[in-house]
């Protein structure tokens, strides 16, 4: 079973070259039933990653390109009058897929953004008074350009908090880029990928995550980390309980991926940058992107034992 996870990773790594760490984190995020935000420049492989993940996990895939004129109905679906039956018939939107790629989420207006984010939080959507469940599993990968790009609506902190992880892919290493240039077009590889897990196996794996053992000593470490963000002066605000739950869930999933049935501090440290990086701000610069250096501080200074 676990070796299948490794096969998944290998398979995705063949498509997305030189990004083993990010792929692993993305899979961790999915196992922990969290949603993923990928923040990077255009053309760095964000779409390829999400598409490849959908293929190997055997999930249905939908892509929503967010634009400034996107309406909530374009995401959730609308009822259309069917003159044959004389009734309104609901046409589900692209959100009714197991893996939804919300591309360039920060280009849409806040109204459309919130339609997606509500669906992420609730696992169901309410349209015209009728509540419709979303498929299970339901996994959103949103991508966004760095906030400094023009014509964007930055996600507010409350909505950033709904993403379990934020990743940044970054430029590939030279060797990886050489292989990329010499090999086939990546998009051509995607249809050839085979699904490795089926729904039942994925559900079983996801159900195993909460059972991964987190001892008292480890919980203490998580508490120390959270307490540090709440009490140290350089943090604009501390981590929420949702964030500490997310941190523990991600660490469990990471331990599961490492074929361990217990969590050690190193697991927490491995997921810490992507889980809390987007939830922290420096006091000196509360609107900026100081999360990274704060995470480094946490990793360095908070006693691990």
């Amino acid at each position: 079973m676990r070796t299948k996870l490794d096969t998944c990773l290998d398979s995705v790594n063949q498509v997305l070259l030189g990004k083993e760490a990010q792929v692993r984190l993305a899979l961790t995020c999915l196992l922990a039933r969290g949603h993923l935000l990928i923040e990077d420049l255009p053309g760095m492989g964000k779409t390829t990653l999400s598409h490849a993940l959908a293929r190997v996990l055997g999930l249905s895939f939908q892509r929503i390109q967010f634009t400034s004129d996107l309406l909530p109905g374009d995401i959730l679906g609308t009822s259309v009058f069917d003159k044959d039956s004389g009734q309104f018939v609901f046409h589900p939107g692209p959100i009714f897929a197991e893996l939804v790629l919300a591309d360039e989420i920060n280009r849409a207006t806040p109204k459309s953004q919130s339609a997606l984010l509500e669906a992420m939080e609730e696992g169901q959507v309410t349209i015209e008074g009728a509540t419709r469940p979303l498929p299970e599993p339901f996994f959103v990968i949103a991508t966004q350009n760095p906030v400094s790009s023009g014509g964007t609506f930055a996600l507010p902190e409350s909505q950033l908090d709904r993403f379990l992880m934020r990743l940044s892919l970054g430029y590939p290493a030279q060797a990886a880029e050489r292989a990329l240039l010499l090999g086939d077009a990546r998009r051509d590889l995607l249809p050839r990928m085979e699904s490795i897990l089926d729904h039942a196996e994925l559900a079983r794996l996801q159900a195993q995550v909460p059972k991964v053992r987190a001892s008292d000593a480890l919980i203490d470490y998580v508490l120390r980390l959270v307490e540090a963000t709440r009490s140290q002066p350089q943090f604009a605000w501390g981590l929420s309980p949702r964030a500490s739950l997310a941190l523990l869930a991600a660490a469990r999933a990471w331990a599961l991926l490492a074929e361990r049935d217990y969590v050690i501090p190193e697991d927490v440290q491995a997921v810490l940058p992507s889980v809390v990086g987007h939830r922290l701000r420096e006091r000196a610069d509360p609107t900026g992107h100081g999360g990274g250096s704060l995470v480094q501080w946490l990793l360095r200074e908070v006693p691990a034992l």
Binding site: E266, L299, V302, P303, A304
Partner: peptide, 9 residues
């Protein structure tokens, strides 16, 4: 050992 270093690393 650094303060933030776990037992395994």
């Amino acid at each position: 050992r650094e303060a933030g270093e776990g037992a395994r690393s």
